[in-house]
Nucleic acid binder design. Structure first.
Lengths: 101, 101
DNA sequence: TTCACATTTCGTCGATTGGCGATAGGGGCC
DNA sequence: GGCCCCTATCGCCAATCGACGAAATGTGAA
């Protein structure tokens, strides 16, 4: 993962409202924008903006169905990011061993 | 971890230069600001600013020794953050089981 | 104490962010 | 077609960011 990509994901996660949005996610059932909005203390346009940021960072996947937009979490992206964070926390020797293995 | 804390760490990580700084870290040997600066294509004051941001997010630990400041990575912070990211990627049922176990 | 060095802080600038209300636009439903 | 619902986008504003050079601070050596 390039530093640019890692930073882009981190940046998208760098707002409490966006963390809360992700935490209110029940991954089994995609949520539409209205449901997500209901779980926030923010204006509809503000939530829509946060969703756009998470979408553009490819943390959320959006699918339009009729008038609604359904969102779900891209688990693999968060998982890869989590691994990258773990790698930052690990000593270079182990980091080398990990990428070799 | 509160959403505020998670977001604060993510925000501090949300810049490619700061990811590069962390990656150039050899954790076994603390680096001083000059060494870190040498590894960057940025003005010295800019690097100092990036170091401040990482310090304030408690991702880096700074120890002054004589005229130099030695930095090292707070592994536990990055590790906890990585776990929080993993939790975001995991379904609520498992998330519950994890925090219970 | 004077100098040189290492690092941080300050001041400035243009760019970006985050918030909101208002507006636009795409779908369904009557 | 006309109307309402759902969502995204626009325009505006204050606030923050990121970059830099200049200046200040702090420390050890001569």
């Amino acid at each position: 993962m390039t530093p640019e990509r890692v930073a882009a994901i981190a940046k998208a996660l760098g707002h409490p409202a966006r963390i809360r949005i992700l935490r209110q996610f029940d991954q089994c059932v995609p949520h539409n924008a209205g449901e997500i909005f209901d779980g926030c203390d923010l204006a509809q346009s503000t939530v829509s903006e946060h969703l756009r940021i998470l979408r553009e960072a490819e943390i959320l996947f959006a699918r339009k169905d009729g008038p609604r937009t359904w969102y779900c979490v891209r688990r693999s992206v968060l998982h890869t990011f989590a691994r990258a964070m773990e790698d930052l926390a690990v000593e270079p020797v182990l980091r080398h061993a990990r990428s070799a293995g």
